[in-house]
Design a protein around this nucleic acid. Structure first.
Lengths: 113, 113
DNA sequence: TCGATTGTTCTAAAATTGTCGAACCGTTAC
DNA sequence: GTAACGGTTCGACAATTTTAGAACAATCGA
């Protein structure tokens, strides 16, 4: 049983807070994390809404999130499923993800005009 | 009314989540924030424990935190007082600061020995 | 007033991070 | 097999961020 195409994921106990905060500090990565709360996505579906980001760029962001322990990226046949490591994050950093996800996402929602 | 030496601080309502996360994603900045929970500090006291960081470097970190809205930096006579904008942060991003401050700070707290 | 104190700002170099094309690797379809 | 898919990795370059010395600004004490 050869094709073990698994990427490395940090253990829950060794997740580093500042790495998680950094991974979440990028708007496009954070938006993806928000979408992942709805459920796992295949990589192609991780594209920003309507955006057309090169595969390598997207893959790089996924790597940042994965190495910080925010997401899991597992092979499934010919594609990959990306999912939020919610329980792990909640276990190690209680309340953090909820606070981040509950916070107002856009800088401000242009009121008037 | 001359010596208005006040630095700009963003309004609470306009704080941006990703900016806050980024500001907190640096270990030395985060450590400072933790210390600020004890109360305001003058800039010189913001030096990392035992560390000897150049003034300009420290000032730059303070700027990052200030512009993100994490701290307030006000002149007081010849020095300046740095304080955590806890209420503002709690108001805009409920639970975020508590979660960050409650989280394990070091990568791992070597248990045994 | 002069000088020491306390910190910010300016400028430039070093280090990180982001972006993207090209090469590459398993998997599945033909 | 071999080609098409779905994605990661590699390498290079651009953009940010970090670091730090030097210059500068405001305040206080003598």
């Amino acid at each position: 049983m050869p094709g073990a195409r698994d990427l490395p994921h940090p253990e829950t106990a060794s997740l580093v807070l500042t790495d998680v905060l950094f991974a979440l500090s990028d708007p496009s990565r954070l938006e993806l994390v928000r979408r992942l709360t709805q459920g796992p996505l295949e990589v192609a579906a991780c594209q920003p809404t309507g955006g057309d980001v090169p595969k390598s760029t997207l893959s790089h962001h996924l790597k940042t999130l994965r190495e910080a322990g925010v997401i899991r990226n597992v092979p499934e046949g010919r594609q990959r499923y990306v999912s939020l490591r919610r329980q792990d994050l909640d276990g190690r950093f209680p309340g953090l993800l909820d606070a981040v996800l509950g916070a107002p996402s856009p800088p401000q929602s242009t009121p008037g005009r």
